[in-house]
Amino acid sequence: MPTSSHLRQVAVLGATGSIGTSTLDVIARHPGQMRASVLAAGNNVDALIALCRTHRPDHAVIADPTLFARLREGLAEAGLSIQAHAGHDAIDALAASDHCDTVVAAIVGAAGLSSTLAAARAGKRLLLANKEALVLAGELLTRQAAAAGADIIPIDSEHNAIFQCLRSRDASLEAGVRRIILTASGGPFRGRSRSDLEAVTPAQAVAHPKWSMGPKISVDSATLMNKGLEVIEAHHLFNVPGSRIDVLVHPQSLVHSLVEFIDGSTLAQMGLPDMRTTLAVGLGWPQRIESGVSGLDLLSHGRLDFEAPDLEAFPCLRLAWQAMDAGGSAPAILNAANEVAVSAFLQGRIGFLSIPALVEHTLSTLPHVAADTLDALLAADDQARHITQTAIARLPHA
C-alpha cells in the first residue's frame, strides 16, 4: 500500500458508471494514500465535469470527440486547471502513461478493450471490471500482462472472491489448488424445467430475484450465460482448465466463490453484495482498507443453500464450457452470438430457448481461429454477429 510519500495514482475508466462511482467513494475515504488522477467517461460530459469538481484529477477524457469543447469549457467555467482530452486513443494513452500507476477498467463492452490492453502492456495494477477483455481477449490480455509484469486484480465479486481465497492469481496444482467453484444465484427461473421456459417473456427474464441489473445482464443471468462467461474469465485469470472449474447454484448470493485445496480444505469468501468491497481489495492489496461496507450478519440471513446447475434447462453454461475448451476465437464467437440473440429476445423477435440454440448454431458454423491479435478477435466477433442475425431472420416468427 502506498505511504503518504507515494500516493497511489488511479485512472478510473468509466468514471460516471456505477463501478466508477463506487471506486471514487473508496478513494475518497483514503485521501492520504490514493487519489483519482485520471477520470474517463463515454458521453456523459456533465457528470464527468461534476466528478472533476469533487475529485480534482489531473486529466479528464471523454470518449466522444464531439463533446471535447463542452468538456474543456465546462472545466474552465468551474475554475479547474484539469487537462481535457477526447477519444478512445486518448483514453488508451492515459491508461498507459505515467499519470497513473493503477487503472480501474470499468468501460462497458468492447469499447473498453483497447484501454484495458494498453494498461496491461504498460505494467499497471489493473482492477478489471470489463468482462469482454477476458471473454474476447483473455489469452491476449493475460499474455501481455505477464510480459509487462502487470498485476490483474478482478473486481467482479466471484473472481475477486477466488483471488482473496488464493491471496494471488496462482491456482496451480503446485500451489495446492484442487479446483475453484463459482457460485450463481440461479436467476429468476431456478428450478424450472426446459419445457417451462418455452413461453418465458422478456419482462419475466429481466425480473431478477436478487439484483436490479440492466436488461442484457438480467437475461444472461436468467439463461446462466453470465456464469458461463465467468467460467471463461476464471479460466484465463487463474490459468486453470475447465476440468478444475465448477459452478454451484447458491440463491442467497452471500458466498461469492470457493476454492478447494488438495489437503481437503475449502475456503469461501462471503460478504454483502457491494462493489466497494472488491474495489477496496484491488486498491489496497495486499493490505485491507476501509471500504464503507458493513460486515455480514449471518444470523439475520439464516440458511445457505447450494445445488447443481441444470444444464439441460440452461444449456448456455454448457456452451460456454465448450467454447472455453475450444479456445482461440471461440469465446469471442459465443459472446457475440449471445449479445445478438439476447437483443432479439428483448425485442420480442425470438423465444427464450432460441437464445442457446442460436449461440450453438453460430459456434458450430463459424470456424475458430487463433486469438493472436485484437483485430482477429474483433473480426470473429463481427462475423459471429452477422451469422446470428442471418439465422434470426430465417426464423418463421422473427
Rank of each mutant, 00 (worst) to 15 (best):
L229R: 03
L229Q: 05
E230T: 09
E230D: 11
V231E: 03
V231W: 01
I232C: 09
I232K: 03
I232A: 12
I232R: 02
I232P: 04
I232L: 15
E233P: 05
E233S: 03
A234S: 15
A234Y: 06
H235E: 07
H235M: 15
H236F: 07
H236S: 10
H236G: 00
H236V: 00
L237V: 06
L237S: 05
L237P: 05
F238N: 09
F238G: 08
N239W: 02
N239P: 02
N239M: 06
V240H: 03
V240L: 13
P241K: 07
G242R: 03
G242E: 08
S243I: 08
R244S: 13
R244W: 06
I245V: 12
I245M: 05
I245N: 01
L248T: 13
L248M: 15
L248I: 14
H250D: 10
H250S: 05
H250V: 06
H250F: 12
P251T: 09
P251W: 09
P251F: 12
P251D: 08
S253F: 11
L254S: 06
L254R: 08
V255D: 08
V255Y: 08
V255E: 11
H256W: 02
L258E: 00
V259H: 00
F261T: 04
F261H: 04
F261Y: 12
I262F: 04
I262N: 08
I262E: 11
I262D: 12
I262Q: 09
D263N: 14
D263H: 05
D263V: 05
D263Q: 07
D263M: 07
G264Y: 07
G264A: 11
S265E: 14
S265Q: 14
T266E: 04
T266H: 01
Q269E: 13
M270S: 11
G271T: 06
L272A: 12
L272R: 14
L272E: 05
L272D: 03
P273K: 03
P273F: 01
M275S: 01
M275I: 01
M275A: 04
M275L: 07
R276P: 14
R276E: 13
R276M: 08
R276C: 08
T277E: 00
T278D: 04
L279A: 01
L279E: 00
L279N: 03
A280P: 02
V281W: 02
V281K: 00
V281I: 15
V281T: 15
V281M: 07
G282I: 04
L283C: 10
W285G: 01
W285Q: 04
I289P: 02
I289W: 01
E290P: 00
G292P: 14
G292T: 05
G292V: 09
V293P: 02
G295Q: 12
G295K: 00
L296K: 01
L296W: 07
L296F: 09
L296E: 10
D297Q: 13
D297A: 14
D297V: 13
D297F: 13
L298G: 04
L299R: 10
L299S: 11
S300L: 14
S300C: 06
H301G: 00
L304I: 11
L304P: 00
D305V: 01
D305L: 13
F306T: 00
E307V: 10
E307K: 03
A308N: 13
P309F: 14
P309Y: 14
P309A: 15
P309R: 14
